[in-house]
Amino acid sequence: MSAEPILQVNDLKKHYPIRGGFFSGVTANVYAVDGISFHIDKGETLSLVGESGCGKSTVGKAILRLFPITAGQVVLGGQRIDQLSAGKLRPLRQRVQVVFQDPYSSLNPRMRVRDILAEPMTNFGLATGKDAITERAMKLMDKVGLPRDAVHRWPHEFSGGQRQRIGIARALAAEPEIIICDEAVSALDVSVKAQIVNLLGDLQKELGLALLFISHDLAIVEHMTHRVAVMYLGKIVEMGTKQQIFAAPRHPYTKALLSAVPVPDPKVKRERILLKGDVPSPINPPKGCRFNTRCPYVFDRCRIEEPPLRAMAEGHVAACHLHDLPAADNPLLTQGEPAPVHA
């Protein structure tokens, strides 16, 4: 790990107030993201995984400062950006770009591809003059594997996969250090998905990009990530390298998620851990461990005390009280049958 991470997020919180009543007072909060910390190094991919509604996308948008955050720090290249004014933040936006999930709504239907790509270039002063901008736009087309003359066309003339390439080209146009891929391949069909994932991987190697890969698809994540952070209900429950997370998960939720990933071998028999019930509401998250309503190994302490992230190994943390038990009694380590769910 290099000394200075490109992006550091410390105890990030984003609560949405719910207003109601006659005088529009705040009646409750949605704890969308409730205190998460991580860092991304140069050229590294960190995947943020979890069920829908767990706050993954909110984290991405908070880093992009698309809205003010409630608490915590976002440190970009050693500089805190969470408190900066819009004017001071604008030049720094160049360093973080984004690729969104839906390739159809992420491109303005009334702008030609060239103008879409020109926007970040002119905003950050990376190219001036019509010809220079068009030239750069064409080079970006080369990079993302689209024909050069595509720059003169409209978004609706492209397929979903091609549009996603244009979205990636727009992100690259700013020459960022980190790209946030917010479910960037979820809306694409399988073969196109593989193409885009490989494209992102190639670009990362070529340009030394860091990626924050927000996804719910563990198969894709395993293919392209260096490290994984597992989120549940606004918190990170486990974080570690790809090998640590996939080979030795240390949180019951991670185990359950992994057990749901299909294995391309019909002979492999695997214990499916079926989680009961739905994700609790982020308006009123459970006390203690947030996973206690669905955890197969839940015991009394989980309902009272919130588990902190404990170090499992070098660079591997998990938030589970089970790790305070002796190793022999810890079902996560003994790999035994999951105990029947208590009440």
Partner: peptide, 8 residues
């Protein structure tokens, strides 16, 4: 959102 992130 992308335009905001692109500094517009």
């Amino acid at each position: 959102d992308a335009a905001v992130a692109a500094g517009t």
